[in-house]
Simulated assay, not measured.
Amino acid sequence: MNPIQEYFYRIEEPDRSTLLFLRKKILESDKENITETLSFGLPFFKYKKKMLCYFYFSKKYKQHYVSFYHGDRLDHLELLQERRKKFKILLIDMEKDLPLELILKLIQEVKAYIK
């Protein structure tokens, strides 16, 4: 098992399945340009080898989240910046429907800042 797979398999169900589904959708959204690496022990998604977003778990909110690079330029009510300078996070409530359309839209916005 590679390190990225190990990261996901340490997460309990049903969170694991949700994050794996989200991972798949992010990678499929731009198969030619979005890649996945493990940085700082976390799955990072890169667009043309530049930071795009990553998954992590918030101890404060006790929820997984997607953190978006160039988040300081994104203007969506659902995003939290707190003390971050370049990133904003979107909490993923596993009890609700996954906001897949919003996540993919935010990825498109971040990609526009990278170009």
Results as ranks from 00 to 15, higher is better:
Y9M: 08
P3D: 12
D15L: 01
I89S: 15
H64P: 02
F40W: 15
R84Q: 09
I11R: 05
I26M: 12
H70D: 05
R23M: 00
Q5I: 09
Y47C: 08
K62D: 00
I4G: 01
Q5F: 13
N2S: 09
N2I: 09
F21G: 11
K115N: 15
I11V: 03
D30I: 03
E109V: 10
L77W: 02
D75Y: 06
I4K: 06
R23A: 12
A112C: 04
L80E: 03
L38C: 09
I34N: 03
R73H: 11
V66L: 08
C53T: 03
M1P: 15
E12N: 11
K62C: 00
L98C: 13
K88L: 00
P43A: 03
Y47I: 03
G71M: 04
H70S: 07
L74Q: 03
Y56T: 09
L91T: 08
F55H: 02
H76N: 11
Y69L: 06
F8E: 00
E13C: 04
S29C: 01
K49F: 05
L98Y: 09
G41D: 12
F8V: 11
S17G: 03
I107A: 13
S29F: 13
S39F: 13
M51N: 15
I114N: 15
S17C: 03
L52F: 02
I4L: 01
K50H: 10
R73K: 15
Y56N: 13
K48F: 05
K86S: 13
Y9I: 06
I89R: 11
S67M: 04
K50S: 05
R10W: 02
E95R: 15
H70W: 07
M1L: 14
M1Q: 13
E36W: 00
F40K: 03
E28I: 07
Y113I: 06
Y65D: 07
F44V: 12
K50P: 07
K86N: 14
F8P: 10
E109R: 12
N33A: 04
L38K: 11
K24D: 14
L91S: 06
L52I: 06
K60P: 06
E28D: 14
H76T: 07
E101N: 15
E32G: 05
S67H: 02
L90E: 01
K24T: 14
L27S: 08
F45N: 06
Y65K: 09
F55E: 01
L98A: 01
I107T: 13
Y54Q: 08
H70K: 11
Y9V: 06
E78L: 10
Y56D: 14
L20S: 08
S39Y: 13
F87G: 03
I103E: 00
L98V: 12
D75L: 08
L98Q: 11
E36S: 02
M1Y: 15
L20G: 04
I89A: 14
M1G: 15
Y47G: 01
S39N: 14
F21D: 08
L102F: 13
F55K: 01
P99D: 15
R16D: 00
S17D: 06
Y61K: 13
I92G: 11
Y61C: 06
R73T: 08
N33Y: 11
K48Y: 07
I92Q: 05
L74T: 04
I107K: 14
N33F: 10
Y61R: 12
F21E: 01
G41R: 10
K111R: 15
C53H: 03
R10I: 08
H64L: 04
L27I: 12
E6H: 10
N33D: 13
E13N: 09
K59W: 04
I11E: 00
